[in-house]
């Protein structure tokens, strides 16, 4: 069996679902961020796979690079927020930081 587009898409989908599961179940802010990274990686595999198999040009890869760039920005900001939360609440459990709703 030749490895084709669907194989890559399925790998991407599995990564995406695992990330989603992480985000859904974790209470730890850093773990949630890790889940987000998995989701972004899954989406990126799709971009590059389509760029390779469907369109035949590199535009998909450009989008992938943009996603990676935004992921870097998101990680930097996200982790800075996590550190700030940790300094205030002395925990990074997201349930603890729900004071905004009151």
């Amino acid at each position: 069996m030749v490895v084709g587009l669907t194989h890559y898409l399925v790998v991407g989908a599995i990564l995406f679902t695992l990330g989603l599961y992480s985000v859904l179940t974790r209470r730890n802010a850093i773990s949630i961020l890790m889940g987000v990274e998995l989701i972004l990686n899954g989406a990126n595999i799709n971009y590059v796979a389509f760029s390779h198999f469907s369109s035949g040009n590199v535009e998909g890869q450009i989008y992938a690079v943009f996603v990676i760039m935004l992921a870097a920005a998101e990680a930097a900001i996200g982790l800075a927020i996590v550190l700030a939360i940790f300094q205030i609440f002395h925990t990074i459990d997201v349930a603890a930081a729900e004071t905004l709703k009151e």
């Binding site: 989603l20 859904l24 179940t25 349930a95 729900e98 905004l100 709703k101």
Partner: peptide, 14 residues
């Protein structure tokens, strides 16, 4: 409904 519980929101979206 507005619990502030992110997981709850996520379930709704999903």
């Amino acid at each position: 409904v507005q619990t502030g519980n992110i997981n709850g929101y996520l379930y709704v979206i999903l």
